[in-house]
């Protein structure tokens, strides 16, 4: 990617494209090897279900804002869906590699380690999609009329938003993971990120139910574009025009994170080389 910025782009891209299928295959095999971990990890995503139970109990006596019981069910199912599909383990992998020095052999390969990582993580997406398909069915039967099944434009935005969310989270994880070259507690930093994300992305509570100033602020922070935005668009809480606008904001955040990622990675490499891992 560094070389790509410096203008030797085409060759690098062609090289990556040639290597990518093989990388994906390895990633997929790896995924199957760790399928037990994947299942355990899926089970750790129980928070939306708990919040769903809570809010449906609350909404029993009447809707909360725009949210009735059905909306809450749809919202948290969507949350679960997007979280599972877009999640990845990059930050843990990266910090581990930097800490125990296994990054070194990766650096010797003629392909940027983040490309390799992206393939490994991307390879998990189809399996994740299969695992969440029951959720999609439940969502269809509980809130089918809210889904963009007959609106190709909105459907396209949802797909793009989910893809964008995946990329954004991947880059954020790359940034925080790379910090492990500087500080011992990169994972603690990620913990703080997760905490902020739980509140400001709409993971715990739909953003519009938070105090208005919090909800407004969240629109200018990256968190919402990882979870809240795709989910809101999916279950029709956002109009197609404003979703299109938000897609642009998401793209801006992706571009910004990409720049930070590359700069930080280069700086970290120098440091990594100086300390010999």
């Amino acid at each position: 990617m560094n070389r790509l910025l410096r203008g030797e782009g085409l060759r690098t891209v062609r090289h990556v494209l040639r290597a990518y299928p093989a990388l994906l295959r390895v990633g997929l095999a790896d995924m199957f090897a760790y399928r037990a971990e994947l299942v355990v990890w899926l089970l750790t995503m129980n928070m939306p279900l708990v919040m769903m139970a809570l809010w449906t109990a609350v909404a029993k006596s009447g809707p909360v804002g725009r949210f009735g019981q059905r909306e809450f069910v749809a919202y948290y199912l969507g949350m679960l869906l997007v979280r599972i599909i877009t999640g990845s383990w990059l930050v843990w992998e990266l910090t581990m590699e930097i800490r125990n020095g296994t990054l070194a052999p990766r650096l010797l390969r003629p392909i940027h380690p983040l490309w390799a990582h992206s393939a490994m993580q991307l390879a998990a997406v189809p399996l994740r999609a299969i695992l969440v398909s029951p959720l999609v069915l439940v969502l269809y039967f509980t809130a089918g009329e809210r889904l963009p099944l007959h609106e190709p434009a909105r459907l396209a935005i949802v797909v793009a938003a989910i893809a964008g969310a995946w990329i954004l989270l991947f880059l954020i994880m790359a940034i925080i993971g790379t910090l492990a070259a500087y500080v011992e507690s990169a994972l603690s930093i990620f913990d703080v990120w997760l905490g902020a994300q739980a509140v400001l992305s709409g993971y715990l509570v739909p953003l519009e139910l938070l105090p208005p100033w919090v909800a407004r602020t969240a629109r200018y922070l990256p968190f919402r574009y990882i979870l809240g935005f795709p989910v809101e668009t999916l279950i029709g809480l956002e109009s197609t025009t404003s979703a299109l606008h938000d897609l642009g904001v998401q793209a801006l955040f992706i571009a910004g994170s990409l720049v930070v990622t590359l700069a930080l990675w280069r700086a970290a490499l120098k440091r990594f080389a100086a300390f010999g891992g």
Partner: peptide, 10 residues
């Protein structure tokens, strides 16, 4: 080794 074998072993 191999993806197919990995699938089969599931």
């Amino acid at each position: 080794p191999g993806l197919l074998e990995a699938l089969r072993s599931v």
